[in-house]
Nucleic acid binder design. Structure first.
Lengths: 194, 194
DNA sequence: TTATAATCTTTACAGTGTCAAGATGTTGGG
DNA sequence: CCCAACATCTTGACACTGTAAAGATTATAA
């Protein structure tokens, strides 16, 4: 195992962070391996010591962003210590959307090429490789169950909830969105009124 | 004006159709100008007689796909001649999602680079450059108005409706979606229960 | 210390978007 | 009918991309 500096410091992590920085500044369209290498001050082939291909670096970057996304969702859960009914779901939804409003480039970056596998079934043997959705499923399953919702309706409800916040995030991160009110409050209303 | 064959037939339209075919087969990631030119049997620089850049060809292809999308939405409206209450909205939503389930590559193609401008206000001076959303807004505005919904609530409701179907389309077109029931019926339920 | 392995550089190659110059066909005015 | 203007297409070139191979450099372990 080697996660420590060899020659040039911990180039692997540097590439990931510089890559994400590049995505934030220029968008996924302008991203290139050679640019990231140049930013890190190494030759254009150096990344191949840590990643087998451009896709592998992108995958590592996506995992990193997904971890930040998870933290934001977990913050929503922590902010509801009592976890009154569906309040925690609304908070999660709000944070879901706000994460992408605060980092608009992340939405197409995470979801456009989309190696994300989706499993909508609620039993534990059906897992998605996208942890945020698994978290949302788990919390929603518990909250809705405690609220007395029959298992039949739960799957549809959870899909609808996910679709709504996911769609809001997608729409809110398009170009030139004109909206006359405060997003954060508005999103909360929309999720509540579902 | 010249929409007729000059040298090589109507290369402009050929490029658009071949480009969309390529997107369908290999996805947006594998798309290249030179491939499309080769498919059409012309030299690699020939497209520059009809499009100023690769982006312009992609834009024309998006417009073409958007027209097909509009036809599908308009079919939903025509299929509800009585237009009973919200039935037409459910049909539109169902067709919205099914269009992308039937053509999974179209979703990232239309929405990833996303030159789409969004205007969520309901007065006519706020227009999106994405006709499907304008159509959905118009129909929803009329239907919900007839149902007696106050204008205050309409904006949120329409956004929520759009976000839900848009999110469903996004989720349904990810890789390896496992779902244990029939999409078409399920989508209808989800939209109804909103 | 020395051999082995990990890391990085250099060089090379095919594929990409785009531009400039020229070739080829089309059209309209004399 | 002819020729000039024009639209269309080809050829060649350039910079940039991802990636592979070979070699150089440095760390690790025996």
């Amino acid at each position: 195992m080697s996660n420590k500096p060899y020659h040039h410091g911990n180039l692997r992590n540097l590439l990931i962070e510089a890559g994400i920085e590049l995505i934030n500044q220029e968008g996924i369209k302008q991203f290139s391996l050679r640019k990231v290498a140049a930013i890190c001050g190494v030759s254009h082939a150096a990344p191949y010591s840590h990643f087998q291909s451009k896709e592998e670096l992108l995958k590592a970057m996506q995992d990193y962003v997904t971890e930040r996304f998870m933290e934001v969702l977990e913050n929503a859960i922590k902010s509801c210590p009592d976890q009154k009914e569906q309040k925690v779901l609304v908070e999660m939804g709000k944070n879901y959307v706000m994460f992408f409003i605060n980092n608009p480039q992340y939405f197409p970056f995470l979801f456009s090429q989309s190696s994300i596998e989706v499993n909508l079934s609620l039993n534990s043997d059906g897992r998605s490789n996208f942890p945020p959705f698994e978290l949302l499923k788990t919390i929603a399953f518990r909250v809705l169950g405690e609220a007395g919702m029959p298992k039949e309706k739960m799957q549809d409800t959870i899909i609808a909830l996910w679709a709504t916040v996911h769609g809001l995030a997608s729409i809110a991160t398009m170009k030139n969105v004109h909206y006359d009110k405060d997003w954060e409050a508005k999103i909360e209303d929309i999720i509540w009124n579902k």
